[in-house]
Computed example of a mutant assay.
Amino acid sequence: MDAFEKVRNELEKEGVSSPSKTRCAEELSVIVSKTFSYSERSLRDFYNAALNTDCEKVSIPQEEVVMALANYLDYADFKEYLAKTPIEKKTTIPEITRSVTPEQSIDFLKKNKTALIVILILACGILGYLYFNRQRWMEWQDTHYVEVSFDSQKLNEGILKFYKKERIENFKRIIANCSTQYFRKDGEVQIWYGKHEEGVLQYFTSYGLHPETGKTLKPITEYMIRKYSCP
Results as ranks from 00 to 15, higher is better:
212 E>L: 14
74 D>S: 13
148 V>K: 05
182 Y>G: 11
65 V>W: 00
11 L>D: 03
209 L>V: 04
157 E>G: 07
83 A>R: 10
160 L>Q: 04
204 F>T: 09
134 R>S: 11
63 E>V: 13
80 E>S: 13
27 E>G: 01
186 D>A: 11
169 E>G: 01
124 C>A: 15
103 E>G: 00
89 K>T: 14
8 R>E: 06
194 G>I: 06
191 I>S: 07
116 L>Q: 08
215 K>Y: 04
31 I>F: 01
89 K>R: 15
115 A>C: 00
55 C>Y: 07
45 D>L: 15
201 L>D: 09
65 V>G: 05
81 Y>W: 15
107 D>A: 13
15 G>L: 06
102 P>E: 05
78 F>T: 04
227 K>V: 15
67 M>L: 15
179 S>R: 07
143 T>F: 14
195 K>Y: 12
105 S>F: 02
231 P>G: 11
37 S>G: 07
229 S>N: 12
1 M>N: 06
16 V>W: 03
61 P>S: 14
15 G>I: 08
178 C>M: 03
209 L>N: 06
230 C>H: 04
153 Q>I: 13
43 L>K: 03
203 Y>A: 09
221 T>S: 13
220 I>L: 01
187 G>I: 13
47 Y>H: 12
76 A>H: 07
125 G>I: 08
183 F>T: 11
147 E>L: 01
40 E>S: 15
131 Y>V: 00
22 T>N: 02
184 R>P: 00
230 C>R: 01
10 E>R: 13
113 K>D: 09
158 G>P: 06
19 P>V: 07
22 T>H: 05
60 I>N: 01
150 F>G: 05
203 Y>E: 07
86 P>K: 12
103 E>L: 08
108 F>H: 10
24 C>H: 03
170 N>T: 12
84 K>L: 13
214 G>S: 07
24 C>K: 06
228 Y>F: 15
96 I>D: 02
154 K>F: 05
24 C>E: 11
49 A>D: 02
40 E>A: 15
77 D>E: 03
81 Y>L: 07
216 T>I: 14
175 I>A: 10
231 P>T: 02
133 N>Y: 02
112 N>R: 04
70 A>Q: 09
31 I>Q: 08
28 L>H: 00
131 Y>E: 05
76 A>L: 13
41 R>W: 02
25 A>N: 06
155 L>V: 01
183 F>I: 11
185 K>G: 14
116 L>D: 01
188 E>I: 10
135 Q>V: 13
158 G>E: 06
92 T>K: 12
197 E>F: 08
127 L>F: 14
33 S>R: 01
2 D>C: 04
129 Y>L: 04
54 D>N: 09
160 L>S: 04
1 M>L: 05
87 I>N: 09
113 K>S: 13
24 C>M: 11
161 K>L: 10
139 E>L: 10
29 S>H: 00
81 Y>F: 15
110 K>H: 05
7 V>T: 14
102 P>T: 04
216 T>K: 06
78 F>V: 01
123 A>V: 08
189 V>Y: 03
91 T>Q: 08
17 S>Y: 12
189 V>P: 03
79 K>C: 05
48 N>I: 11
118 V>T: 14
112 N>C: 02
113 K>Q: 12
168 I>V: 14
83 A>D: 13
137 W>D: 11
21 K>E: 12
105 S>N: 04
189 V>F: 03
